[in-house]
Design a binder for these strands. Sequence first.
DNA 1: CTTGAGCATAAACATATGTGAGTGCGGCTA
DNA 2: TAGCCGCACTCACATATGTTTATGCTCAAG
Lengths: 242, 242
Amino acid sequence: MTRMTNPLILKLEQRDQLSDAEKRALENAVSRVRIVEADEDIVREGDRPSESSLLLDGFAVRYKIVSNGRRQISAIHVPGDFIDLHSFLLKTMDHGVLALTTCRIALVPHTTLEKITDEFPHLTRMLWLNTLIDGAIHREWLTAMGRLSATAHMAHLICELYLRLKMVGRAEGDTVQLPITQAELGDTLGLSTVHVNRVLQELRKEGLIRFQGEALTILDWERLKKVGEFTSTYLSLQNEDR
Amino acid sequence: MTRMTNPLILKLEQRDQLSDAEKRALENAVSRVRIVEADEDIVREGDRPSESSLLLDGFAVRYKIVSNGRRQISAIHVPGDFIDLHSFLLKTMDHGVLALTTCRIALVPHTTLEKITDEFPHLTRMLWLNTLIDGAIHREWLTAMGRLSATAHMAHLICELYLRLKMVGRAEGDTVQLPITQAELGDTLGLSTVHVNRVLQELRKEGLIRFQGEALTILDWERLKKVGEFTSTYLSLQNEDR
DNA sequence: CTTGAGCATAAACATATGTGAGTGCGGCTA
DNA sequence: TAGCCGCACTCACATATGTTTATGCTCAAG
């Protein structure tokens, strides 16, 4: 079980120290592990889960469908992300979560989470923090969507995903595996597939990235950051007493 | 002090019951009350507050400025909102908060919040819930921004603000006081001021709303909801054990 | 009463991004 | 090996929304 919950512990420990008891509590919180195939829903809108899903391996997105059939993706999840920790308190899912690739998922019962909040105040704060960072990412996306050009928005997203993957040990040098289609990127950025294609080509032509197959390589981090007006403070990468 | 923290308690009690001890803990958490004038910052980007601000009266927005000077508003806060509760754990503000009107603000020291998390697990969950609802609102805004037309997006925002104000007792029948300019609405929706004007006129012409001065009246709730594809689940208005 | 600031409104025009309808490639699957 | 499907990519054209500039209202300050 230790190996399995690693990515989350890895993430949390970059923000504050965890005691052995806390790590054990997290590891023991997992009731079972589930595999979800690509293109299957992990949770559906309207569900009232009794367990939260911790993504051990694979990629998943939170999404919502609007009336004309269009889709908006409001979060991209990478290994180590506690996909729907919020359902512990929100109760009813107001959006679905879809597996982009085969996903290995650890399930943590809400009753166990409740016990953690009763017995481990500091660990509770760390889990709370985890959801707060999700919120910070949402705000950042909102800003990028509302006030940046499509190109800048894309650059911003790439910077973020690169750092988040790196943080959980999924970067090999300047490249990460990003198994996400241009249509899915469009649903994330609020753009059409065609425009996503235009924008990616621009970033490539500018020598900022390479993106072949699923391998995304950052060719010029500094300029990419500048184009995307990216600063990483919202990801709370600092280690602090919390 | 009781009267002052009322709007938050009012809000929380619509989601779950609070014990007397919990209410007292909340009331005693306030170290002092501060007045911030309209157009002044309550917190600035980069700040590391040692207290969180609970809005007792007035309107405030969270915002971020991007390079070309444009602004994106990522949250509109109404009385009862815990404006920057997240700074308790996030530590560094990645955005600013601006008072739209004169604001009366209760300050809660982070040390007190820490004590609450140590001693009142259920109250902690309720505060956590509060930040989770902020996150849910962000996701909803993201969807509206990315995939709805400007008109639908505006209708959606109006539905949300109406309900949130009603929830804290700030609606008189079908009308609420909304002291927010069209430029500010633009910064919220990611639109230009000119287009905000067009869109508001359309909603008026359709007989959905009246908006004169600061008084916003809902003329046809059902149709407004439909135009904005609004459903209120994300606001977690249900009372549940949490 | 002026004056001026801030705001809503307007019209003409500009453009970033969307739409629709394809092509072609690589990798499954039969 | 053939056929098909998903996906990246293209082009021509459409349009929602942005930009610029200006007008007139309202209200507070003098």
